[in-house]
Amino acid sequence: MDKTINITLKVWRQRGPKEAGKFETYKLNNISTDSSFLEMLDILNEQLVNEDKEPVVFDNDCREGICGMCSLYINGHPHGPDSEITTCQLHMRRFKDGDTITIEPWRSAGFPVIRDLMVDRTAYDKIIQAGGFVSVNAGGAQDANAIPIPKRDADLAMDAASCIGCGACVAACKNGSAMLFVSAKVSQLALLPQGKVEAARRAKSMLAKMDELGFGNCTNTGACEAECPKGVSITNIARLNREFIWAKLKD
């Protein structure tokens, strides 16, 4: 038979972006340790609906760690106490019987709360729109093998591209800085020949957009890297710094 645990949840409830929020406490009994964290929240919501109460709003989509939608700040860690996983990959076996689990939304000026645990992350889309792409003239794509790329560069670009844009870096950063995200999105293109052409313009416009949207200044604490579900390295931030400083010095 499954092992089950009884837990207490402290969940942040907030009706809207402008309203003040507060913590509500819920008790959940007989939660299977095999259930995922989000399934546990589904059980909570079912219980709330049955009691004619408002269910807790939280973001989720693919539930296999690739879409970047889930976003909970659990017991002081974005995506919970495990490392290099998203919230949807977190399981209740990570918790003990009688535990109190505190669940908060990402807290950052750049990510305003929409409701309860759901935050508005369109700021990331705006940063991408500012330059996180390669301009291509329409026409037949050329053969990939025609452009040799060193293995090292390909690997580094791929590692940067593993960023799913979930926002855990901003949530973990004491400065609310989005540098890890921006640097990953700059690096995944700047390392490849197709992206190098627009590298300077991209670094400048994406960083300007990040600053404009109210994210903070990076102070190299490294909390973003430690909490990133994809283990994106802060050496990408060094690359962004290089790209940006060079671009500005050339101007």
Partner: peptide, 9 residues
């Protein structure tokens, strides 16, 4: 940039 509400934990 951290916003108006601090983390509880």
């Amino acid at each position: 940039a951290r916003g108006n509400n601090r983390y509880a934990v």
